[in-house]
Design a protein around this nucleic acid. Structure first.
Lengths: 211, 211
DNA sequence: GTCTATAGACTGATAGAC
DNA sequence: GTCTATCAGTCTATAGAC
């Protein structure tokens, strides 16, 4: 379930191979990864990969599924909470994702690639149904706000795009920021920590001022 | 120089192979692309790829370089223009990139992958030196604004992140938007056309209100 | 469970006919 | 310039020893 355990002590061989595979797959991608790379990274032999996971593809599918679960995990509790305001929900969601992405910065590019190469395969696994559902409290709150504020003529999709963009994209582009703008890993993480509070503020500003 | 010619008439064999390679590389990635795929896509034989381009890797490098040039092309003229305001520069830059990305939506993920897999190789080719240079007029205008507005204590990198994020990320995530949110290609492009004016407005708002 | 050795298929690249 | 045929290397997966 964990995509990046800090230190794997007393892990079984199966777990060690899976973690090794996760590291190699997320950095090199599926096609560029050789089962030999995974074996070497895990410290075990090539044959054990097939012994535990039957094939390279099945191992990849398991890892991809676990990463997707990291994305949708515990989201429902946040968006369907009746005791938090719309603004609080946005703050909690963004904070939640930035925390997760600081721990697993390689996930977005990894998932976006698979989404691009194999949309149908992933889409069914995403299970976002729980979110687009009208019964979710966040959607209800949004519609109340949209109803009250007559000037809110902007397509709500722009807001969704902005939240996802400002939260996720920096992680996807971090090699560029690090190597070109000369930003270290620590400085980058510090910037992302700042964005936990900044992005909700900006988003609220965008919602309120867009006529 | 063109990454996506509308219709290639009277193209030489070399050009046809290059265009076929561009299509296959950008959709499947370098590792997952077989020279046989390129040959089939081009309508020619496998041997001609090596005849014209010596190797799969050299062909890939040529295509990557052309895509990078699309990104930095004519930027200098925009950012160093002394007769446009800071706001106008932002509007022109964003409009310029959205136009380019609507024509070549697969470029960002393609470039970001290579940047992730092989940072050193790309960074030197990027030639962004012309932009980070203090002599560039946009930088001068930004510093004037920052000097005049004492409350402008935000790290400028946030602004850069926001512009890049809100402009580029939707294209990277478009399979998600199309298949999950049920947005068609036309609707997506229409949203991006709207964003040409919206993003500069939002960015200016962020600059002015962030204390 | 873990290893070595190898089968069987595929890949990038080239030789050589036309 | 363009093709067919093929080589040499590499890959995933498995058989079989321990």
């Amino acid at each position: 379930m964990k995509a990046q355990p800090e230190i794997v002590k007393n892990a079984t061989t199966e777990e060690k191979i899976k973690e090794a595979a996760r590291r190699v797959f997320t950095t090199k991608g599926y096609a560029a990864t050789r089962t030999r790379d995974i074996a070497e990274e895990s410290g075990y032999n090539l044959a054990l990969i097939n012994y535990y996971f039957r094939s390279k593809e099945k191992l990849f599918d398991i890892i991809m599924l676990e990463h997707l679960q990291l994305f949708i995990h515990s989201i429902k509790d946040i968006v369907d909470n009746q005791s938090t305001s719309l603004q609080e929900k946005i703050e909690i969601l963004i904070g939640h994702y930035i925390d997760m992405l600081i721990k697993n910065p390689e996930i977005p590019l990894f998932v976006l690639n698979e989404l691009n190469a194999n949309p149908a395969k992933l889409i069914e696994k995403l299970g976002f149904n729980q979110i687009e559902n009208d019964n979710v409290y966040l959607v209800k709150q949004w519609k109340e706000l949209a109803g009250a504020k007559k000037t809110l003529t902007i397509n709500p999709m722009h807001i969704v795009m902005n939240v996802l963009s400002m939260t996720i994209f920096p992680f996807v582009a971090s090699p560029l920021l690090r190597d070109r703008a000369g930003i270290s890993q620590e400085e980058f993480n510090k910037l992302m920590e700042e964005r936990k509070k900044l992005i909700p503020k900006w988003i609220l500003g965008i919602i309120m001022t867009t006529t």
